[in-house]
């Protein structure tokens, strides 16, 4: 990891809790913009969730979208500015509950945008309620006895689901729990941006993330919980990759 502040991050102090993954992922996205030299042509979409203030943190132009609507707003921006780079940054409640329709349809249209998806298995901002990605048995504010699949249904594996759609160019799940994984996550994010710049279609990078505050765990314990509980349910890997060569138009 480099420790110089990327240019694509403003000087504003992050408000994230200690041990939260949001800060790391922000940095990776910003480094990607720096390395590709696209900060000036990028428009980012802030979600409703803990990352709502992303518009204060990223130095590129930013739009704050309603809860779940970031990909619809991104669609409008990209259709108006097809030569610009557009990314959304969304939590699991935002992307996979209230914004499921916007997500699935942006993906299936092959909307040429990049989605950075923070899967922390919980609603962080509202104080730790069940998310669509809360894993079976996980205790949250609204699953006090542990998530029962009988009552609350099963979690959504977003990358696997979206990988079935023809519009998706890249769907990859990464983690930021170790230096090695952080480096891999960075590579994935950069690849997604590059695919977008080459006009290949919809790209999504799902980042398994920690929320020590609402998981009620120490920072080391939350990293352990992510590895032991989340990774088995949400395996890391590439679920769809249209490959290095640009597809012929059909």
């Amino acid at each position: 990891m480099k420790f110089k502040r990327p240019h694509a991050l403003t000087d504003a102090q992050f408000h994230y809790c200690p041990g939260c993954s949001h800060g790391i992922v922000h940095r990776l996205v910003a480094e990607t913009m720096d390395e590709l030299g696209v900060e000036g042509k990028t428009i980012g979409l802030a979600p409703v969730g803990c990352a709502v203030f992303a518009y204060n943190y990223f130095n590129c132009d930013m739009v704050q979208a309603a809860h779940g609507r970031a990909q619809a707003v991104a669609t409008g921006i990209k259709r108006a500015l097809p030569d610009n780079v557009v990314f959304t940054y969304q939590g699991d409640g935002d992307l996979a509950a209230i914004g499921t329709a916007e997500t699935v349809h942006a993906a299936t249209r092959g909307e040429n945008i990049t989605v950075i998806f923070i899967n922390n298995a919980i609603y962080g901002m509202t104080g730790g309620q069940m998310a669509p990605t809360t894993i079976p048995g996980q205790v949250t504010q609204t699953t006090p006895y542990g998530r029962s699949t009988k009552d609350a249904g099963h979690p959504i594996r977003v990358c696997e689901m979206l990988a079935t759609l023809d519009g998706v160019a890249l769907a990859q799940r990464v983690s930021v729990d170790t230096v090695k994984n952080v480096n891999a996550a960075k590579k994935a994010i950069k690849k997604a941006f590059q695919y977008q710049m080459e006009g290949r279609g919809y790209t999504i990078i799902e980042v398994l993330s920690t929320c020590p505050t609402n998981w009620g765990l120490s920072i080391p314990d939350s990293l352990e919980w992510l590895r032991k509980q989340m990774v088995p349910y949400y395996p890391l890997g590439v679920f769809k990759d249209k490959g290095e060569k640009k597809e012929e138009g059909q």
Binding site: I43, V63, A65, A66, R69, A72, V73, A74, T75, G76, I77, K78, R79, A80, L81, A101, E102, V104, H105
Partner: peptide, 26 residues
């Protein structure tokens, strides 16, 4: 121009919001 049939009216108005934010008439 762009004509896009959205997945819902919710999505359609948010696309309009995006296009307008990007600086075009929508």
């Amino acid at each position: 121009g762009t004509y896009l049939q959205a997945e819902s009216e919710v999505a359609a108005i948010n696309m309009v919001l995006g296009a307008s934010a990007a600086g075009v008439r929508a």
